[in-house]
Amino acid sequence: MSLTREEVLHIAHLAHLGIDERELPKFQEQLSDILEHFAALTALDTEGVPPTSHPLALESVMRDDEVKESLSVEDVLANAPNAEDDLFRVRAVLN
């Protein structure tokens, strides 16, 4: 399984991961090499085998919808790179 340059750029875009053009060939080669090793798995016959998304078969855990104490706004914003009036501040989302 070999990834093209465009595919690597597309994946990086989906993941919101900026990529330096000079790093692109390295990632393209390494990711292709890793996917190559997965080929045997994708060829395996798993017809009718249910997927396991969690190792333990737990029931969904439900609790009452109650108001409880949580972190203060001050604590929550303490690590914010840019905050204003109890809000996180970001650059324009729409250009």
Partner: peptide, 20 residues
Amino acid sequence: DGVKYGYSYTEGESMWENMD
């Protein structure tokens, strides 16, 4: 994403560029 905590690039033109 550089919004709530952690390292944040802030020199970009848009929120998306900053996030990338």
